[in-house]
């Protein structure tokens, strides 16, 4: 059985839980419910030659990055970094979390999601900034947990990266 632990990382209220719910159950709720601790979900991703079960660890997005429980990430093989496209400061938060995780457990594959792409008129991240990060070779997706846009693409991409 091919099984991989994936951690959702990002500031609070960026949509980590909503992205997991959209990916696993294909549903979205407008109600914001903060996550405390961690929630674990599973979803199978089928490729032509294999099927991988992603064990998704939906970690609490801390207001204060310092209180992030890095211990939850032990055993993970990939990260989903989530940014709220309407709050520019959440990009720095996601990148800092990744640094902390890599300092503890070494580098691992990740995808970077700019979420809430449906909120066009509140969008706060410039195309230039996103393109700059793409030039680093990063896998970047503009997602909407509300509409489901690019959510499956992002998780499938990560699934393929962690099973290579």
């Amino acid at each position: 059985m091919l099984q991989k632990k994936i951690c959702m990382l990002g500031g609070f209220g960026v949509g980590k839980t909503s992205l997991v719910r959209r990916f696993v159950q294909s549903i979205f709720s407008e109600t914001y419910l903060t996550t405390v601790g961690v929630k674990i979900d599973k979803k199978s991703v089928a490729f032509q030659d294999k099927t991988v079960d992603l064990i998704l660890w939906d970690l609490a997005g801390e207001d204060d990055i310092g209180s992030f429980r890095v211990s939850h990430v032990r055993g993970a093989t990939g990260l989903v970094l989530v940014v709220d496209g309407t709050r520019a400061a959440t990009l720095a938060a996601a990148l800092t979390l990744r640094e902390r995780v890599e300092a503890e457990f070494g580098t691992m594959p990740f995808v970077l999601l700019f979420n809430k792409s449906d909120l066009v008129d509140r969008w706060a991240i410039s195309d230039g900034e996103i393109n700059g990060l793409r030039q680093l070779g990063w896998q970047i997706y503009l997602t909407s947990a509300l509409s489901g846009e690019h959510v499956d693409d992002a998780f499938r991409q990560l699934a393929s990266m962690v099973t290579k």
Partner: peptide, 25 residues
């Protein structure tokens, strides 16, 4: 195989190990 959330955790190089507030299936 039986507890998915244990994926990747064993063998654990650093024991004792504590994870707080994990919501189980």
């Amino acid at each position: 195989d039986q507890l998915e959330f244990m994926e990747g955790l064993l063998p654990c190089p650093e024991l004792p190990y504590h994870m707080a507030m994990v919501e189980l299936p």
